[in-house]
Simulated scan of single mutants.
Amino acid sequence: MKAIGNWSKEILLILMALVFLSPIYIIFINSFKNRLELYDNTLAFPEEFSLQYYSAAMQRMDFLNAFLNSIYVTVVSVVFIVILSSMTAWMLARSGNWVSTVIFMTLIATMLIPFQTIMMPLMQMVTGITRTTGIPLYNTLSGLIFMNIGFHAALSVFLYHGFIKSIPISLEEAATIDGATKFGVFWRVVFPILTPITATVMILNVILIWNDFLLPSLTLIDKDLRTIPLSVFYFFGEFTIEWNLAMAGLTLTIIPVVIFYIIAQKYIIKGIGEGAVK
């Protein structure tokens, strides 16, 4: 009976995995079909596995430019998020007064506010700042990076804060006695210990920022500034949808994130596990 129970659990898990993977299968298979094949049978294999639709999608998307834009926005945003969030979380965790508690709880509260409720006032403020002061926040990659840092800081501070509280303060006191400044204590003692949670923060933010569509669609207007999700969106027209090209574009969008996640998934587990044990 125990063996039957184990087999039934494995079969159930396999079926659940197939259900969750079915959208990826549909996207991948249909990216090789022409429109007639796609509408005839969505789930069937294509008559020929040809890369012509990938080539056409890359040309229409201006894939190289969009890919470089996405890489630039993601990398710069994540670097600043890691640096600023880790320093903020350390100061809040070590201050131990009511002011730091209020600041921390305010950051946590912002995680509960849906972006859709503030996106229009945000765009009005951003365009107003750009128009009146000349600070390039609207329709620039630097403005998008600035907003990414703000919107993703709360989650990152929350993750860092919990991990930092588990680090013995005696290590920092010993470094201070040895003559280290606060800056030196953080970068030479604390930050190296944060490596597991830093990897987790980086991976989560890379996935969120790379796949983000709504904020770039509101911020970026020029075609040369489009990220990959924005480039894929323009296969979906008002009166017609080029499904085969859209599927090829979506596959091209997914591949970098999947490769990155496969390489880095062990660090997510390690970061979560060490944080829980500590």
Rank of each mutant, 00 (worst) to 15 (best):
F163V: 00
R60N: 04
S22W: 01
V258H: 10
I71Q: 11
R94M: 06
T133D: 08
I193H: 07
L208E: 01
V75K: 07
R94E: 00
D40G: 03
S77W: 04
R94Y: 08
I169T: 15
M87H: 02
T227C: 09
I29E: 06
T130K: 08
E242P: 13
M105P: 10
L64R: 01
K9E: 15
Y160E: 07
D178G: 11
Y53T: 06
V99W: 05
I269H: 05
S217F: 15
I197T: 04
S95K: 14
N211T: 10
Y160C: 03
S217A: 15
T74I: 01
W243M: 08
A153L: 13
L36C: 13
I145G: 06
F45D: 15
Y267K: 06
D222G: 08
Q59N: 14
N30F: 05
I193P: 08
L38N: 01
N97D: 11
A44C: 10
E238W: 09
V201A: 02
M125C: 04
G184S: 14
T127L: 05
L92A: 09
E274C: 00
G150A: 06
F236W: 14
A3E: 12
F80P: 01
F191Q: 12
V82R: 09
I167Q: 11
N69M: 09
E238C: 03
T101S: 14
T240P: 04
I149C: 03
V258Q: 07
L122Q: 11
T117D: 08
L107W: 09
K2E: 03
S231D: 03
N211Q: 07
N148Q: 03
A276I: 12
E48R: 14
P114N: 05
V79F: 00
T140H: 05
A174S: 13
G184Y: 14
S8E: 13
K223M: 11
S70A: 00
G134R: 07
I259F: 13
W7V: 15
S156V: 04
I113L: 10
F146P: 06
I177C: 05
V201Y: 01
Y72H: 12
L144F: 08
I29R: 03
V102T: 14
Q116P: 15
A109D: 00
T130F: 08
D222K: 08
A89C: 09
S55R: 15
V76G: 06
T251C: 05
F49T: 07
I26E: 05
K33V: 02
N148A: 02
D62Y: 00
P23G: 04
L144C: 01
V78Q: 02
S166C: 00
N148L: 04
M123C: 07
Y138G: 08
